[in-house]
Amino acid sequence: MLIAVAVIFANLLADLTYNYLDPRVNGVANGEHNTGPNHKTNGCSFLEFWQTFSKTVSALSALACLPVIIFLAIFAPWIAPYDSSSSAVFQVGDIYNPPSASHWFGTDDAGQDVFSNFIFGARISLIVGFFAAFISIIIGGVLGLVAGFFGGRWENFIMRFTDIFLVIPDLPLMVVIVALTKPSLLNIIFVIGLLGWTTTARVVRSQTLAVKSRKFVLRARAVGAGNGHIISRHILPLVMPILVVQAVLVVSLAILNESALSFIGLGDPTTLSWGQMLNYAFGRGPCPLGMVGVVLPRDRHCMGGVGVDPARAGA
């Protein structure tokens, strides 16, 4: 459920960031050409951004949620009431406990505190998410920029290559690759990263094409600037906002993919991530989470829903 919430919030955040950056990316707001001097200043200042932003409830909650999760992940050992890495001493009566004052989310089959697991799991999920997204963004960004800026044969080659990657269904391929290699954290990061760059490449290419055709790029050429200068000073700053938005989306997608892989048992068995938790919960009988089932937004394969009944948990 929290994965779903995080993904939805990340998407919201992405939309809002884009809405904020859009007028800047596209130079002038509608009608600026006609309204003449000083009639309009675009919402570029942080203050104006904040004014729009603060009016949206969902945006605010997303904004509140994200640092909380990052905070949890970083300071997990200090926040978590129990250390989930050590197999703590437990008694038979400790397993499958319903939520209580000492175990907020109850305990699992091994008698471990679910709340602590959840906090520690955030670490792995975020690590995979960020690193995989980083790889994706770098590959997609570079390929998109090169294809869009230089055009011609390069563009054709890169975009056909991208199309090939695009038509391969990500998740099954990931499953196959991870199954063939050792399911370690590093492998999962690479697999998700190396397969997730296609949309980024396409989006960056189209934005590059749009920016390239603008007059200030021609002016920079007339001034005598070379390709490197034009890319770094004129193209990149205007592609950046889109890249940032894309990065947020890719992070959420990577978290989801990691959960999916872990859920079907292809996660790194030595680590604990949110997906892993779901896997255990699903595979080892009734889950003690005092929460109602959720349907994860993207997944069609195996993570349909985990329905939990608190009454059964107590039994």
Partner: peptide
């Protein structure tokens, strides 16, 4: 290029909005 410079038609388009 130092000797021959150019001015464009559309001053809205010929300046990079991020600079």
């Amino acid at each position: 290029r130092r000797k021959i410079q150019m001015i464009f038609q559309d001053p809205y388009e010929s300046l990079n909005p991020t600079q």
